[in-house]
Amino acid sequence: MTSQPTVLFVCVHNAGRSQMAAGYLRQLAGDRITVLSAGSEPGDKVNPVAVQAMAEEGIDISQAVPQILTTGAVQESDVVITMGCGDTCPVFPGKRYEDWALEDPAGRDLDMVRGVRDDIKKRVQALIEELAG
Rank of each mutant, 00 (worst) to 15 (best):
I59V: 15
V35K: 08
R17S: 00
G23W: 05
E57A: 12
P66T: 11
R123Y: 07
Q75G: 00
L28E: 13
V51P: 00
D118L: 03
A73W: 08
V65F: 03
R96S: 08
G84H: 09
V91D: 00
S18R: 07
A64H: 14
T6Q: 06
G133K: 15
T82L: 05
V79A: 01
E130A: 12
I120L: 01
Q4Y: 14
L102I: 05
I61H: 02
A50F: 06
E98L: 12
A22G: 09
R108D: 00
R117S: 01
A38G: 04
Y97H: 01
G133N: 15
P66N: 12
I128A: 11
D111K: 11
P5R: 15
V35I: 09
E56T: 01
D60R: 06
I81H: 01
G115E: 09
D87T: 10
R17E: 02
A29I: 09
P90N: 11
V116C: 02
T70Y: 06
G58E: 10
K122P: 00
V80A: 01
G43E: 13
W100F: 04
T71Q: 14
M1Y: 15
Q67C: 02
I59R: 08
K45I: 05
L25M: 15
P105N: 02
V7F: 12
E41C: 04
D44S: 09
V79M: 14
A64D: 13
I33Q: 08
I81Q: 03
V91C: 01
Q52C: 05
T71L: 13
V124K: 03
D78F: 02
D99Y: 05
S3Q: 15
Q67F: 03
I81A: 03
R123Q: 15
F92H: 10
G133H: 15
E57T: 11
K95D: 01
V65S: 09
G84K: 12
V80N: 07
Q19G: 08
G94A: 04
S3P: 05
D109R: 11
G58T: 11
L131F: 11
K45V: 04
M112R: 10
M1S: 14
V7G: 12
D44Y: 01
M112C: 09
G84F: 07
R117K: 14
L102T: 04
Q27H: 14
I59S: 02
Y24H: 05
L36H: 12
G72R: 14
I33A: 03
A73I: 03
L127D: 11
R32Y: 04
